[in-house]
Design a protein around this nucleic acid. Structure first.
Lengths: 142, 142
DNA sequence: CGGCATCCTTATAGATACTG
DNA sequence: CAGTATCTATAAGGATGCCG
């Protein structure tokens, strides 16, 4: 068994992390983990996703064994996506991330405000210079 | 306190999730959480990242209050990036994700193989099949 | 309804060169 | 060393239309 290292460019774990650390993938998988969902339902629920991107995302998730796809012979046809046991274990980790986001959003927004204010204070108005100052100011964070 | 919903397009939590669910951000933050690191050290450690992307990522992390930046007046100058308490809480969640990846990579690779075999059987050499095969090969570790 | 195909517009990444 | 600036290649994303 090879030694896996997410920092190694060609390591499968790195690629897997790249997959799941995708803005759409996380949202879609998490939504499906809440119970079987149909395509257009997902499209409505995950705001801003296009049919194309949703389709691609579902394919990748299915291919990775994280979700299943069941077709019902209704008219018109109905397709349900459901979480697999493997996918369930991942969605739990993603939920932790989402919870972190909800819990700490205030702190992050406050940091951004502080950061932007500090950058604006000692700055003229050139965009190029702004980028420079911003970095310098980052030192005083926290 | 507003009601946050990561599925809502304009919700701050959704934006935050989009930030941290970035392939480079997660890796960089996690690496920094291991102890203060210098710019070029990060560049070497996180394989495949360019100076430009690393620079952007560090800026964003600093702005979000997740990392700090300290400049030492050595010759040549030395800059150290360190995790903040807030960033530390996030990196712990990211670590959980990374651990999941390492733990379940075998299962995912197996699922992919099964998937591609089934798909290959019925689609021969279509573009979709080719794309799948490409991914699988890319994931192959030496 | 559940998609895929197509076209087209942006982001984003990578490579390279250069500076304090 | 620690970045910035710029240009280019490529991919991601959005809009639309069609079909089983």
């Amino acid at each position: 068994m090879p030694v896996y290292d997410v920092y190694a460019k060609n390591c499968p774990t790195r690629m897997l992390l790249d997959h799941i650390a995708d803005k759409w993938t996380a949202l879609v998988l998490w939504k499906i983990s809440g119970g079987p969902v149909r395509f257009n339902q997902l499209r409505r629920d995950v705001e801003g996703i296009s049919t194309k991107v949703l389709s691609q995302t579902l394919k990748r998730l299915g291919r990775d064994g994280l979700i299943s796809r069941e077709v019902f012979a209704t008219v018109p046809v109905t397709v349900e996506y459901a979480i697999t046991p493997l996918g369930q274990t991942l969605s739990e980790k993603i939920e932790i991330l989402a919870e972190w986001a909800e819990t700490n959003i205030e702190a992050v927004l406050a940091a951004q405000e502080h950061f932007d204010k500090a950058a604006g204070d000692e700055m003229g108005a050139t965009a190029a210079g702004a980028a420079n100052r911003r970095l310098i100011q980052a030192a005083g964070m926290r």
